[in-house]
Design a protein around this nucleic acid. Structure first.
Lengths: 343, 343
DNA sequence: AATGAAACTGAAAGCGGTTTCGGAAATATT
DNA sequence: AATATTTCCGAAACCGCTTTCAGTTTCATT
């Protein structure tokens, strides 16, 4: 038989109300009484019932963490790390995380059942209609690695990260720099593409469409295909690839085409996931701080829950260029004296 | 103001009890009444309150999915995929998944608060003491990728998978086959090591301790170190590495030592995660069906919850050798006629 | 038409907490 | 010592749903 608050009350010789007050640190309890209650609770091994408590308080201390059901396999690792960080942060605030994939009205359901107090939606592929619907319902939620005007979101500095990466290649002396990605429709990739173009422009390098190639959406080996397509059109001395997996696949295509990396073609990726350090050659890439994404998402969401009318914010997590071997060293001797660190 | 069952009852002209019966498909309701209630519920947009319902039924339809807090980074991807599959399976049964890391008494807490109905504990590094404690408390739980006598568990066929992998190398003509892993204390790696030894033994190849090397526990680049240590002791023609990440790191060490893969040294890994297909060269490895692990874990757990006194079971998920390029082709001409498929 | 059985439905008592509100006890004020 | 304040604590209502138990209909039988 479950130990209830009544049992504790009886043993401590007080009423359930008093026990509740003690256990929730409410004021107005004599120290002596408090001790007696605490002792009784301890002795009985009392643990408050979650459902009863949340029914009474209307708070579940639970956050929903949602990813898209059919998101690419490689992103399991990415969002897994975001979620792990989110869980840690949530726990520190006394919250739990309910994990779910986005499935028709599942997200809203969680809210309406009062199962969670807020939602974290991770990934670019969350249906826009759903987001707008949530916005309209006024439920607390934040987007991670995705954004929409007027919606609370935690975003990666895709544009800036790409700019850094491409600038680095330019500093190394490259002039013909390609851009590769899985498909342009993806918001993140589009932003990285923008960063690529800005870097070229700011360094006075003309943009050439023949240096840009896409693969096939959601297809394994997409990067391989993209690289092949690129090589049919042009022969850049370097490429910036919109994510690590695509980059690694592209490197394979380059190798098979007889190109050495980085001597014949320098490669820079984006993400700095598990792959990058063990790629061949180790991949220079843009690090995305997944922990920061998870932590900020939770903090922001909890803040929104506490302050429902706070105006929406976009929080940008900056990136860091991690230099490994796939991008090589300066092409020209006179450039080799310039610093290649990016701070 | 929240729509409650009373509102629906009033609108349908029945009692809350009847509404409850209709909504839970309980028998004994006239078709006409049922329709009226359904209509009223629909019109009001009624959604039952989760806390109230679980307080009354003592069921939360929620399962806890726990991983160790400080598990290696690479396993984020692995368990992420297991969890994604588990979530899907759970959803099909009307359940949700609460994600958490193992943290002191957190797991038991979830149960005792009646927040979850059962636990899935994923990974070898769950403290044994915790497992025994849970066992003793009689709470429903299953282990994934871990096992203990008398405990419900879903395991990977580590021994068999390793046996297959090494047998394949032997069939290719290799006689000096090394074994590499991060550290032997890990249950999975120990089992894979056992499979390695059995394969040697059954094929009449003597076991040589100098062909075995470990890296550093939980250290990035552990496989690199292990490979270097191995090369200091011996010069095998092939190695079986206990997981993909370690294998990829080892390949790097081999390359740096001037060895070509697979010509000079054949490599086989274990896991078939994201890394394997994009490794250089693409890694022959043992596929672990992560979906199956997640699905079976949920099914077993739900069964235990429904039938508390069912005797404990160990469910073994078999593996499949995936042949790519890192293991090469038969060493000797006469062997090249033998089939190298493993079914 | 009377009767018994079967089919429906409602009142009310939980489930295990929290919280309001008022009374009692302890302390301060005159 | 009597009264006014505080300080503490308990009774009871409530959160929203389920379920037992008994009562009311309905329907089939005789």
């Amino acid at each position: 038989m479950r130990v209830t608050i009544h049992d504790v009350a009886k043993r401590a010789g007080v009423s359930p109300a008093t026990v509740s007050r003690v256990l929730n640190d409410r004021p107005g309890i004599r120290a002596e009484t408090r001790e007696r209650v605490l002792k009784a609770a301890r002795e009985l091994g009392y643990i408050p019932d979650f459902s009863a408590r949340s029914l009474a308080t209307k708070r579940t201390r639970t956050l929903g963490f949602l990813v898209h059901a059919r998101h690419s396999l490689s992103s399991h690792s990415f969002y897994g790390q975001v979620m792990a960080a989110a869980e840690r942060e949530a726990r520190h605030h006394g919250y739990h995380l309910l994990f779910s994939t986005v499935h028709k009205d599942a997200p809203l359901m969680l809210l309406e059942e009062q199962r969670v107090e807020g939602l974290i939606l991770a990934g670019c592929d969350i249906p826009r209609a759903l987001i707008l619907h949530l916005k309209h319902s006024g439920v607390p939620f934040v987007l991670v690695d995705n954004h929409l005007p007027g919606i609370n979101s935690i975003v990666i500095d895709n544009e800036g990260g790409a700019y850094e990466a491409v600038s680095h290649l330019i500093r190394l002396g490259h002039k013909e720099i390609g851009f590769l990605c899985e498909w342009m429709e993806d918001l993140s990739f589009a932003e990285r593409f923008a960063g690529y173009k800005r870097a070229l422009q700011e360094h006075g390098i003309p943009y050439r469409p023949d240096l840009v190639a896409e693969g096939e959406p959601r297809t394994p080996g997409s990067g391989y295909i993209a690289a092949q397509r690129l090589l049919q059109k042009a022969r850049p001395s370097a490429v910036f690839v919109a994510n690590d997996l695509t980059a690694v696949e592209a490197m394979r295509a380059f190798r098979e085409a007889g190109l050495n990396i980085p001597q014949d073609i320098a490669v820079v990726g984006f993400d700095d996931g598990d792959l990058a350090p063990v790629a061949y050659p180790p991949l220079t890439t843009v690090r995305v701080f997944r922990d920061a994404l998870g932590i900020q998402a939770v903090r922001r969401l909890l803040y929104i829950i506490e302050h429902p009318s706070t105006p929406p914010l976009q929080i940008r997590v900056f990136t860091k260029l991690i230099i490994r071997e796939s991008c090589g060293t300066p092409l020209h001797a006179q450039l080799s004296q310039e610093p290649i660190e990016t701070g």
